Every structure is written in structure tokens, then in C-alpha cells.
Amino acid sequence: MRRDVFQAIADPTRREIINLIAFQSLNLNAIAENFEMSRPAISQHIKILTECGLVSIKKEGRERFCEVKFQKLKEVSQWIEQYSSFWNNKLDALEIYLSANKTKVEPKK
């Protein structure tokens, strides 16, 4: 099954896994210790993250360490940015409208 970044980050557990390994690579056991679910369940989440390219796994001896691939998150950032610009423009227009009409809606004393 072909997965994309949006499917991967839709799950809160996978987002938390990304947060855990954002600044340091961790082995699978270290990641699993942070969750109240089985190691196979965590492995399944990590599999999804690797399938979409958000996480890579490096083998060091018998250990497997997970690292975030931040460049794949750019796709999400770009998608969000288009809506951020849209809402910023709408809110700016609302602020201008309210400022222009402020004197018209001053309460009577």
C-alpha cells in the first residue's frame, strides 16, 4: 500500500514518535517505552512512518535506530502555508473593516 505523509501524521501516536526522535535517534525499545502499547504496535507505526519517508532506520550492530527525515515534512508545511496565507488575509481584512467602522459602533453614553 502506498502511504503519504498526511496519512502518517494523522495518527497521534505517530506524531508523538516523530516528536520523540526529532532531536535524537532512538532504538525501537526506547521509543516503545514511551507508550502504553505493545512493541509490535509501535513497530507497525514506525513501519508506516518509514513507508512514507518520514523516518529512516539505521542498523548499528543488533540495534535499529530511528531518525526523522524532516524534508518530507516540507510537503505538509507547504500545504498548511496556503491556508495560513488565506486566513491571514481574511483576518487582516476584518481588522481593517473593524478599524474603519469603530467610530460607527461606539456605545452611547
Rank of each mutant, 00 (worst) to 15 (best):
D4E: 10
K47G: 12
E67N: 12
V68N: 15
F23Q: 12
Y97H: 03
V5I: 11
A30C: 13
Y83Q: 13
E81Q: 15
S56E: 15
Q44R: 11
C66E: 06
P40R: 00
I21N: 04
Q78A: 06
K59M: 14
Q71T: 14
G61I: 10
S56I: 15
L73C: 06
N89Q: 08
V105T: 09
L91V: 02
I9V: 14
Y83L: 11
I46G: 04
N19G: 01
E60Q: 10
D4I: 02
L73E: 03
P107C: 09
F70V: 06
G53C: 09
N34C: 02
P12C: 01
I42T: 07
T13Y: 01
K108E: 07
K59L: 10
V68T: 14
E95M: 08
I21T: 12
R39N: 05
V76S: 15
A10W: 03
A100Y: 08
V5H: 10
I17S: 00
K72N: 14
R62G: 13
E81C: 10
P107S: 06
I17L: 01
V68Q: 13
A93W: 01
W87N: 08
A10M: 06
V76T: 15
I80Y: 07
Q7W: 03
W79K: 10
N34S: 03
Q44A: 10
T50C: 05
Q24M: 05
L28N: 09
Y97Q: 13
V76G: 14
R15M: 03
S77Y: 15
Q78T: 14
N19I: 06
D92H: 05
E51S: 07
A22C: 10
E33H: 01
T50I: 01
K47Y: 02
G53H: 04
R3F: 00
I18H: 00
K108T: 13
R3I: 04
K104N: 08
V76M: 14
K72R: 15
